[in-house]
Simulated scan of single mutants.
Amino acid sequence: MKSLNVVIVMLFMAVGLVLTSCDKEAVETNNNETVVNSDSDMESSFEDIDDLASTILEATESNSGGRIAGEADDRVCEGAITFSGDANSGTIVIDFGAGCEDSYGNVRKGKINIAYTGGRFQSGSVVTTTLDGYSINDIAIEGTRTLTNITESANDYPTFSISLTGCKITWPNDDVATRTVSKVRVWKRASSPINDEVWITGEASGVTRRGVAYNTTITDSLVYKASCRVSTRGRLALAGTKIIETENKIITVDYGDGNCDRRVSIVVDGKSENVNLD
């Protein structure tokens, strides 16, 4: 009888260890996905802001005297844009007011302030985007984004260095994430703007909304395409790889080979898993 009791106790202990191990693995997997999602969420949010600023700048340059004849993007409500300056330098304010809804159902609030010097495609030109009380779907985003044209030749694709400072993202539940960026953006223009691609390389660091500090290095250019928008808040990369390092993890993220979807592969400790980004 004692032997039977010992066997039963050992059986329960073994089951407990298995369950504990499974729970731990599930928690770690969830944490890995949270880190990847947080990094991608911040990346897509600022890609959306860059894309919007670029669209408005192009509309400004293409109109006589730098004036904007009409709204250039369905993310911007009527009368939201004010402009001061000319084609070579000036300021643009996009004021979403108390709320401006786009065709995807996103609601933007606050202001995006754009200051530029030099024509966008001139080497040395600078575009500085500063957010003032800006939010999308009540997710508040702060920071200053500076794009400097570093194109070396007229035969090259327009190339820009990117720096992001003072970045803070606050969710409605008061979760907070921070981020700094040092990257290079290559704009591969096509005959039709819908086929334009943006290739990003470089590094980022910050703290996720769960308080996890991380460093990100792009190991194979992240590719964004104008025609691919699978996330409501902004475009996600459809190709490329990056490595995200936390205190105790190295996470490799592979965006695939060009399919327009939210699916990525993450590899941690030699284990691979396919996940869908939020």
Results as ranks from 00 to 15, higher is better:
200 I>N: 03
159 T>N: 06
220 D>T: 13
220 D>C: 02
200 I>S: 02
194 I>N: 11
168 K>Y: 01
185 R>V: 00
221 S>F: 08
187 W>D: 03
225 K>P: 07
169 I>G: 09
190 A>R: 04
180 T>M: 02
201 T>Y: 05
195 N>C: 11
191 S>R: 09
211 G>T: 05
167 C>S: 08
225 K>Q: 12
190 A>T: 07
213 A>C: 01
188 K>A: 11
175 D>G: 13
212 V>K: 10
181 V>F: 03
174 D>C: 08
217 T>P: 05
223 V>T: 11
192 S>L: 09
221 S>R: 09
160 F>G: 02
158 P>N: 08
170 T>P: 14
149 N>A: 04
171 W>M: 01
181 V>H: 00
216 T>A: 09
172 P>A: 14
192 S>Q: 12
218 I>Y: 05
162 I>R: 02
172 P>D: 01
193 P>E: 11
185 R>D: 01
147 L>I: 06
211 G>A: 06
148 T>S: 06
195 N>M: 06
207 V>I: 15
223 V>D: 13
163 S>C: 01
220 D>G: 09
179 R>N: 07
199 W>C: 08
211 G>R: 01
149 N>K: 02
196 D>L: 07
167 C>I: 05
200 I>M: 02
194 I>T: 13
183 K>S: 02
191 S>K: 09
180 T>W: 00
209 R>F: 10
161 S>H: 02
225 K>V: 04
152 E>D: 15
162 I>C: 00
207 V>A: 08
173 N>Y: 09
210 R>Q: 10
192 S>A: 11
202 G>L: 08
223 V>L: 15
180 T>Y: 00
207 V>S: 07
145 R>T: 12
210 R>G: 07
178 T>L: 04
153 S>K: 06
161 S>G: 13
218 I>C: 12
167 C>R: 10
217 T>A: 06
206 G>L: 06
